[in-house]
Computed example of a mutant assay.
Amino acid sequence: MLRPEAIAELTNTVFFANANRAASALVDPAISGDTDIYPDETVRAAVCPAAAAAAANSVSAGAPGAPFAVWSKA
């Protein structure tokens, strides 16, 4: 299921959203464009405002401007 081709095929078969961004281009446009399956940003922000705010303010660990690294080398 981690392979984009596999999860995209499953999404195209069962009409269920997946979170694999690499699979997005492989999902049928009729499914990926269906807001009942993949809600738009406005709906997602209304459903989970804290997650939307966190995503808007997040910085990947190790990226320029990141406050600290999440892991360290032993």
Rank of each mutant, 00 (worst) to 15 (best):
S58M: 10
S32F: 14
A74E: 00
A55I: 15
T42S: 05
D40G: 09
A50C: 05
D28T: 05
R3V: 09
Y38W: 04
G62F: 14
E41V: 13
D34Y: 12
A50Q: 06
A51S: 01
A6Y: 09
T11R: 08
I31R: 02
A69G: 09
L2F: 01
D34Q: 03
I37S: 01
A19I: 13
R3L: 13
T11M: 11
D34L: 06
G33L: 08
S58E: 12
E5T: 15
A55W: 14
I31Q: 02
M1I: 12
N20C: 13
A55E: 12
L2H: 00
D34V: 08
A30Y: 06
F15I: 02
N57W: 05
D34I: 07
A25W: 07
I37F: 00
A56W: 05
G65R: 13
A19P: 04
P64Q: 14
R21H: 14
A45H: 03
L10F: 14
D28L: 07
A51C: 06
A53W: 11
R44L: 03
S24M: 15
V59H: 01
A52I: 04
V27W: 02
R44Y: 02
A19V: 12
V70A: 12
V59L: 11
A69R: 14
P39T: 00
N12T: 09
I7R: 05
E5R: 15
A74C: 00
G33E: 05
A61R: 10
S24I: 15
T35S: 02
F16G: 00
T42Y: 06
E5Q: 15
N18I: 05
A66M: 04
E5G: 12
R21E: 13
V27N: 01
F15K: 13
V59R: 08
A22M: 13
S58R: 12
F16D: 00
D40Q: 04
A51R: 08
C48K: 10
P67T: 02
S72K: 06
A25S: 12
V14T: 11
M1K: 10
A19E: 12
A53P: 01
E9Y: 13
G33I: 04
P67W: 07
L26P: 02
M1W: 12
A25H: 08
V70I: 10
A46E: 09
A55Y: 10
S32A: 14
D40K: 05
A23I: 03
T35I: 03
P67K: 04
E41F: 08
A19M: 08
D28P: 01
L10V: 13
A54M: 14
P39H: 00
A30E: 09
A17F: 07
A25D: 13
T35A: 01
D40I: 07
P67F: 07
T35Q: 05
F15S: 11
A69V: 07
Y38D: 03
S24W: 15
P4H: 08
A63S: 13
I7D: 13
A19Y: 11
E9C: 09
T13Q: 08
V47K: 03
A8Y: 07
R44V: 08
D36V: 07
A55K: 14
I31D: 01
G62M: 10
N12Q: 06
M1T: 06
M1V: 10
F15D: 03
